[in-house]
């Protein structure tokens, strides 16, 4: 008896598709409300989700914690901006250059670490050290980076080809980050459903066993780091063009690294929806807590915020999406969840 191949369209999957379409339609239509404040908040949320997704592509699938992903975000911001200011190169092209540079740095870091079997906590610390190194470099290399003051991009008017949309055409910036997030999530999904995804799952499951199945673990890990860091740099260019100003401590700081990882861990690392769910919840909580607590109770919103996160992490340690998936798997009749001795 051969087990049946899974049917492509189950009722549950259909419901998921419908919900996804509704969500996408909602976000496409959002600028029609002409509420720039709301748009800013949603854009911040998208940026959070996007960076989380790039991190998730590498760390979620390989199980190797890249604690310094902010470095690649920063490389993107600095590369496109420096090219813009020194050579008047369009940030659209700068975005690609930054992505390539970032991928090279990311792949070099991954190769050197993994080649010499630097794993677990040491990989995380190594990545953090590299990120710090790049931060210090931008602080010290003043002629190129303007040091601690950061870089201000002078406003030269709206120009689509120069990635300059300004406040009046804010909705264009909004669509850019929306498309970026959709594209990045699509790539994450495609990887998961491909040979690469299965290989990464195998390597994450047990590297020796994967090697013994002919999988060159190092090659696939480095490749994935390349994809992840290439995309992470795009967020940097977007940030620079949207805010028109950035400085090393904001771009590379510990808080930035934390903000990249946290939505994913909260939402469910290794899942495509995880970073998005995590970002929505983080941004949502922050908004709600700030609104219901009087503004002169300094620090209290943060306490509430932290408390809710602690509770979520305690009861859903694998993240929200993984928690829901597990629940669904247990309630699903067609799948066995445990096996006796055969």
């Amino acid at each position: 008896m051969t087990p049946e191949l899974k049917t492509p369209f189950s009722p549950r999957k259909n419901m998921g598709v419908v919900l996804a379409i509704i969500a996408i339609a909602f976000f496409i239509g959002l600028p029609l409300l002409k509420n720039n404040f709301l748009l800013s908040i949603v854009m911040e949320m998208f940026l959070l989700a996007y960076l989380g997704q790039t991190w998730n592509i590498f760390s979620g699938s390989t199980g190797l914690l890249s604690f310094g992903h902010a470095a690649f975000f920063g490389i993107g911001a600095y590369t496109s901006t420096i090219l813009l200011l020194k050579f008047n190169l369009s940030p659209w092209i700068g975005m690609l250059v930054g992505g390539l540079l970032s991928a090279c740095v990311g792949m070099a870091i991954a190769y050197l670490s993994l080649r010499y079997k630097v794993r677990g906590v040491f990989f995380a610390l190594g990545a953090l050290a590299c990120s710090e190194f790049i931060r210090l470099l931008t602080l010290a290399w003043i002629p190129l980076t303007n040091g601690a003051q950061g870089i201000m991009i002078p406003w030269k008017g709206e120009n689509l080809l120069m990635f300059a949309f300004g406040v009046r055409k804010k909705y264009l910036s909004y669509y850019v980050i929306l498309i970026m997030l959709a594209l990045c999530s699509y790539i994450a999904y495609k990887i998961k459903k491909s040979r690469l995804g299965y290989y990464l799952a195998a390597i994450n499951g047990n590297e020796d066993a994967a090697e013994m199945l002919g999988i060159h673990a190092l090659k696939y890990q480095v490749m994935t780091m390349g994809i992840s860091t290439f995309l992470a740099a795009w967020a940097g260019t977007f940030y620079a063009q949207y805010y028109q100003h950035f400085e090393p401590d904001v771009i590379f700081g510990a808080m930035r690294n934390f903000n990249i990882i946290f939505p994913v861990v909260l939402g469910g690392s290794g899942t495509v929806l995880g970073p998005i769910v995590g970002a929505v919840i983080l941004q949502g909580f922050e908004g709600i807590v700030r609104n219901i607590i009087p503004s002169n109770w300094y620090g209290v919103p943060r306490i509430f915020y932290g408390l809710i996160l602690v509770i979520l992490m305690m009861y859903m340690p694998g993240g929200i999406v993984n928690f829901v998936k597990r629940k669904l798997r247990h309630s699903s009749p067609e799948k066995k969840t445990s096996a006796g001795g055969k």
């Binding site: 040979r195 799952a201 066993a209």
Partner: peptide, 17 residues
């Protein structure tokens, strides 16, 4: 060294890939 994060058929698929 089984891949605990994958189902049996997925475990076995890896070689076929």
């Amino acid at each position: 060294k089984i891949f605990g994060n994958l189902t049996v058929v997925e475990n076995v698929m890896i070689g076929a890939l």
